[in-house]
């Protein structure tokens, strides 16, 4: 119990004393996870929308794959991305291993199935005739799709938040492709793991609490932005 209290006090003091390393780690965590979520959204939203609205062969197979992909172990994703980014691997020439970019790539791979599956589910909740009805009121295809997006705004935001939550809290891939290098690729989860293996449990709990605060702040912003227009 002392460890938990200790963690709480350390978290507060790290944050409010303006500890530069903690803030740098927090900022990197935010950037990497938001970037991964954004990439996953760029790939996953069109794919999820296509699954929900389209009628092409392999549609259900894709949906099943996305649903399965939601359970993809981050460590496995990390390993695969690592092997691809190895100097001797097919993408070795870019020198991306142990950089934040590599972490973004791995986390985007983790988040994409989440986005695809939840976007598909979100759009399937809307009446299948919605797009036709919007067109039937004079909407272009693009405006109809935007109206659909607005109609499914809350579940779509939930999809984004789930994706963000999946990547901001994962440690396996971040550790493997990032290498937990101080000042370069150390994020809150890998910092917490390192603190744990160093026996600095209070610090580890502190990082965990900072992570929780960060996720809460992001979700709060998104929720407020999403709920406002009524």
């Amino acid at each position: 119990m002392d460890v938990l209290l200790d963690g709480l006090t350390q978290a507060l003091s790290l944050l409010f004393s303006g500890d530069r390393e903690t803030w740098a780690i927090t900022l990197l965590t935010l950037r990497v996870s938001l970037a991964a979520t954004a990439v996953a959204a760029l790939v996953g939203v069109p794919l999820g929308a296509a699954i929900a609205l389209g009628a092409f062969p392999g549609r259900r197979l894709l949906l099943a794959a996305a649903n399965t992909g939601m359970g993809l172990p981050p460590v496995v994703v990390g390993l695969v991305v690592t092997v691809l980014l190895w100097r001797s691997g097919p993408l070795g020439g870019f020198g991306l291993l142990y950089t934040p970019t590599a972490m973004v790539v791995a986390q985007a791979v983790i988040a994409t199935p989440v986005v695809v599956a939840l976007v598909a589910a979100a759009l399937q909740q809307v009446d299948p005739e919605f797009l036709v009805q919007m067109q039937g009121l004079g909407a272009t295809r693009v405006r109809a799709l935007l109206a659909l997006g607005a109609e499914a705004r809350l579940p779509l935001l939930a999809a984004a938040m789930a994706a963000f939550g999946a990547v901001v809290s994962e440690v396996g891939a971040a550790q493997m492709v990032g290498g937990n290098i101080a000042g370069q690729t150390r994020v809150l989860t890998t910092a917490a793991v390192l603190a744990t293996s160093r026996g600095e449990f209070g610090l580890a709990i502190a990082f965990g609490l900072v992570l929780l605060l960060l996720a809460f702040a992001v979700n709060l912003v998104v929720t407020l932005a999403g709920q406002r227009p009524r």
Partner: peptide, 12 residues
């Protein structure tokens, strides 16, 4: 698009 308006079976 500019000329037509549609009402479907279900009021969406």
């Amino acid at each position: 698009r500019s000329a037509v308006a549609a009402v479907l079976q279900r009021p969406i």
